[in-house]
């Protein structure tokens, strides 16, 4: 602690973050160089941040313009007269709040599904031994390689026979079978966790499932955070699946709702951008709060081998 204190404001004063201490003590001593180094980091970060912010700023500017001003030349960054009413109009035109609520329901169920299925499956692949494991693993990976559109018609046929069209089931059920992307990610992650931990627990009398849920899972916090963030993002943006399976206008998610701003012949770009901007805010807010959990795991435990 004392060490981080004298390093000033640059270092997060996280107790027990031994890795931080390792890095900081490496640059300890040469104060001027340290400040210079961190200054450079900020310059680089800010420069990249500006590049990455441009689209958001541009969308924001477009959302406040009148239809003809968007295409005026020379193009302007700041609208002559910001039309805040575009936002009101976008919400008036279609029930965007309702659409976002629907998406939220889908997101929650998808996250629950992934959280239940993925750790279990990944643990099996990473830690347990059984015949045909490698073949099954390759098979699972290969389902990611098939172009999704090819499965559209047969899959629709199945759900239709089961009478599940115009319900959220086809949009939620797959999560409970585990997404191969997350399974693969978690397998890789579990494989980097030292086996000594399992062995120690087993000697203490813990069974397979206890080891998974008591030992492994708590160490997988960053990867679970990734799962939540990505599931949120993917479900939020998924257009094709809800389009194919839903009939009821008021059950549409926001991805489908946004598409209504694009007409058959033209697009009201200002309203479209306003609606898009509003719709991505929840994703960014979630990410802002979730990301602190991306930082953690073994590194912060200061685990000694």
């Amino acid at each position: 602690m004392s060490q981080s204190k004298d390093l000033g404001p640059l270092i997060a004063a996280e107790a027990g973050d031994s890795r931080n201490r390792a890095i900081t003590s490496a640059i300890n001593g040469v104060t001027a160089r340290r400040w210079l180094g961190y200054g450079a980091v900020y310059v680089v970060l800010t420069a990249i941040a500006i590049v990455f912010m441009i689209p958001l700023l541009w969308m924001f500017a477009t959302s406040l313009k009148s239809r003809s001003e968007i295409f005026a030349w020379p193009p302007s960054w700041i609208p002559e007269q910001p039309l805040w009413s575009n936002y009101a109009m976008a919400f008036e035109k279609y029930p965007l709040a309702r659409f976002m609520m629907n998406t939220s329901v889908l997101v929650i169920f998808n996250i629950i599904g992934e959280l239940l299925a993925v750790p279990l499956i990944a643990y099996g692949f990473a830690r347990l031994n059984f015949p045909f494991k490698r073949v099954l693993f390759i098979l699972m990976l290969s389902t990611m390689m098939i172009p999704g559109q090819i499965k559209l018609i047969p899959l629709y046929s199945i759900y239709s026979r089961l009478g599940l069209v115009n319900t959220y089931v086809p949009l939620v059920l797959p999560a409970f079978f585990g997404n191969p992307f997350f399974i693969f990610l978690m397998v890789q992650y579990i494989r980097t966790i030292p086996r000594d931990l399992d062995e120690a627990a087993r000697i203490d009398g813990a069974g397979t499932w206890t080891i998974l849920y008591r030992i492994i899972l708590p160490l997988c916090k960053p990867v679970l955070a990734v799962m939540i963030v990505f599931t949120f993002l993917w479900v939020w943006n998924d257009f094709l699946q809800p389009l194919i399976y839903l009939n009821d206008f008021y059950s549409y998610p926001i991805s489908v709702g946004l598409a209504f701003f694009r007409g058959r012949y033209s697009v009201e770009w200002n309203l479209f951008m306003a609606a898009t901007l509003v719709s991505i805010l929840p994703v960014l807010v979630l990410y802002f709060f979730a990301q602190r959990h991306l930082i953690g795991g073994i590194a912060s435990l200061g685990l000694k081998g």
Partner: peptide, 13 residues
């Protein structure tokens, strides 16, 4: 349906 997704939906069914 949104016009941008109408074809996909019809063709699937």
């Amino acid at each position: 349906l949104p016009s941008s997704g109408y074809d996909e939906r019809m063709q699937t069914t």
